[in-house]
């Protein structure tokens, strides 16, 4: 692996909200960029804090964001081999305070996010938390927490680095059935961006029912755009201007509740179109529950224009209204989503 084609950063936010970082810089970057890179976890975790403000009873965790990377035709001369970009976030509550371990990984391989996430969540994050108790007992007042955390982040970074390039496995979760509660359409033509959400009618009881299973329609509508911009910013900070991101998967969780967002895209005549689905695990009483592969196939059919959009949306979920779209990139549109779709009554 060429060292130039690997981006790796690990950040820990303690229960006192102090953020510690350890970043693998394979190439010399300007001071300003390094300063900005250190602020990345705050930016990536932005919507997370927003959801906390939205409903403080539920603490949503952004588990992972996966993006493929495409080559930018304008920068043909400096070609990058980087193919995938992952953001992983592990949240662990200790003594009523949240701690976060966040990683971004840019790699030339299609990485296996599950194994990387498990290493972070079950080993690195736990060892930081456990180490605090153990070292406080051993060293008492002489225990230097900062040095300890930096050391553990270095261990974590080495562990993640070692796991990169592992073949992607098929997990049983991928055979799980999901129910789609919304479709997000995104178009980008130069600087003109359009994002729309298709979901249940406002008077459909399913709309309010699923408000308990997601942070909010508002947040789900803005997440793909939000994270795509963050990844693009990150790549620019690492001076990777020859590639641009396409969101593939976002996974959120709250206690035992899980929300998955999957997206497919196509670029034609310099216009990028993408369609994504907001999925929640099967509800037994509902029809239209399918495996992820079914949804991906339907999204490809819409993108390839082989099937009628409205008809395909109804095949995905007959309760989603394919005719009324909610704008997700204007203040007015987002205001409507907040007011009408996120209304619990």
């Amino acid at each position: 692996m060429e060292s130039l084609d690997l981006l790796l950063g690990l950040f820990f936010s303690s229960e006192n909200n102090i953020v510690y970082d350890n970043i693998e810089l394979s190439t010399k970057l300007p001071e300003g960029n390094i300063h900005q890179i250190k602020l990345l976890p705050m930016r990536f975790l932005g919507p997370l804090f927003m959801t906390l403000a939205y409903d403080d009873k539920k603490k949503w965790n952004i588990n992972f964001i996966e993006s493929t990377l495409s080559s930018n035709q304008e920068y043909k001369t400096k070609e990058s081999f980087m193919q995938s970009f992952l953001c992983l976030n592990s949240s662990v509550e200790i003594e009523n305070n949240m701690t976060y371990l966040f990683a971004f990984i840019g790699s030339p391989y299609a990485e296996d996010p599950k194994i990387l996430y498990e290493k972070m969540n079950k080993y690195v994050h736990q060892s930081i938390i456990q180490g605090k108790y153990v070292n406080q007992k051993v060293y008492g007042v002489d225990f230097n927490y900062n040095i300890f955390v930096i050391g553990e982040l270095q261990r974590g970074l080495n562990l993640i680095k070692h796991s990169l390039g592992s073949p992607r496995k098929m997990y049983w979760e991928e055979k799980k059935k999901y129910y789609s509660i919304g479709l997000i359409e995104r178009k980008k033509d130069g600087d003109v961006v359009e994002s729309n959400l298709y979901t249940f009618d406002t008077d459909d009881p399913l709309r309010t029912k699923f408000l308990n299973d997601i942070p909010s329609y508002y947040l789900m509508a803005i997440l793909p755009d939000y994270f795509e911009i963050r990844i693009l910013e990150t790549l620019k900070l690492f001076e990777k201007k020859d590639i641009y991101p396409n969101i593939r998967t976002i996974k959120l969780s709250c206690s035992n509740v899980e929300v998955l967002y999957i997206e497919e895209f196509v670029v034609k005549n310099q216009i990028r179109r993408s369609y994504g689905l907001i999925l929640v695990p099967t509800h037994e009483e509902l029809e239209d529950c399918y495996e992820i592969s079914f949804f991906k196939k339907k999204l490809r059919l819409i993108l390839d224009e082989k099937r009628d959009f409205e008809k395909t949306v109804i095949e995905i979920n007959s309760r989603i209204n394919p005719f009324d779209k909610w704008s997700a990139n204007s203040n007015e549109g987002l205001g409507n989503i907040k007011e009408l779709l996120d209304n619990k009554n």
Partner: peptide
């Protein structure tokens, strides 16, 4: 890092953290 976290979160800085 301490100053950065303070500016972003506006959370009171723990004295122990500052001393460390």
């Amino acid at each position: 890092r301490l100053i950065k976290s303070y500016c972003f979160n506006k959370q009171k800085i723990v004295e122990k953290e500052l001393e460390n």
